[in-house]
């Protein structure tokens, strides 16, 4: 067997990464390029998106498209700019820590607009417009919250991610006719700007990380490596699965 044996290679694939301007999406974009993929990145912040785009210089194909996925015209513009894709990792999302008694319709709408409606609409259009090639693989970044873990204060967020996981399974069934696979990753707490917003203090985060059996919060690349598996041909027979990557937290 040659040294270039690599069933996880992404060579010859073009992959879209949303939320690529920060955190998990940033790591996914950079690692996909290292695995040989062409990568299209999208996010809202122009400078941070460009900084990630600049790191994709060895990718056989690269593109950057700035878009707010909760704005219909932006989403349309993004879809129109996409090349045929062999994979997509939808990382764009937000979180909120809010006891349910404060979860007004407005708060739910804010969370569902970005975490549920935006990725679902993007997924729908990529499939309907046949931007996703036959055999393409889609990875939705959900969360353990809402399906595997129910921490107080996470209800509004968890509901949006549980809904996303539900659509993932239906899409996996329906899109199988074109051999398009749809899976999700459900991360536990991952060290990105998302968790350092101050609602939870740094001291509380340090304490919370100790509750993870593997002794630490996740790193963005822990999730990126899972995404690479799901994008690669190594997972050709896997669809409709929610891959928990959480250092053992939800066991």
């Amino acid at each position: 067997m040659g040294n270039d044996y690599n069933p996880f290679s992404l060579e010859g694939k073009n992959i879209l990464v949303t939320g690529a301007s920060s955190g998990i999406g940033e790591a996914v974009a950079i690692k996909c390029a290292l695995m040989g993929a062409g990568v299209a990145v999208t996010g809202r912040n122009v400078e941070r998106l460009k900084a990630v785009y600049d790191q994709l210089e060895d990718a056989p194909f690269r593109a950057q498209i700035t878009a707010d996925l909760t704005v219909a015209e932006d989403l349309e513009r993004l879809v129109a700019a996409l090349p045929p894709l062999d994979g997509a990792v939808l990382c764009a999302g937000n979180s909120t820590t809010l006891p349910l008694q404060f979860g007004s319709r407005e708060k739910f709408d804010d969370m569902f607009n970005v975490n549920f409606f935006a990725p679902v609409e993007l997924l729908r259009l990529m499939y309907k417009k046949k931007i996703l090639n036959k055999g393409a693989s889609v990875v939705l970044i959900a969360s353990i919250g809402g399906t595997h873990s129910f921490m107080p204060g996470n209800g509004v967020y968890g509901a949006s991610k549980a809904s996303l996981n539900a659509v993932m399974k239906y899409a996996a069934r329906e899109f199988a006719s074109r051999r398009v696979r749809v899976n999700s990753i459900c991360p536990g707490m991952v060290d990105t700007p998302l968790i350092h917003r101050g609602t939870i203090t740094e001291e509380q985060l340090v304490e919370d990380a100790k509750r993870y059996p593997l002794g630490r919060y996740g790193r963005p690349e822990d999730v990126a490596y899972g995404a690479i598996y799901l994008l690669s041909d190594a997972s050709s027979w896997l669809t409709g699965h929610d891959l928990v990557i959480d250092g053992g937290f939800s066991i």
């Binding site: 820590t97 809010l98 006891p99 008694q101 404060f102 101050g198 609602t199």
Partner: peptide, 17 residues
């Protein structure tokens, strides 16, 4: 968390942990 949410609702102020 409830106090933080109450302050946001009632006073339109974001307090942090």
């Amino acid at each position: 968390l409830s106090i933080i949410a109450m302050v946001d609702d009632e006073y339109d102020v974001i307090v942090k942990g």
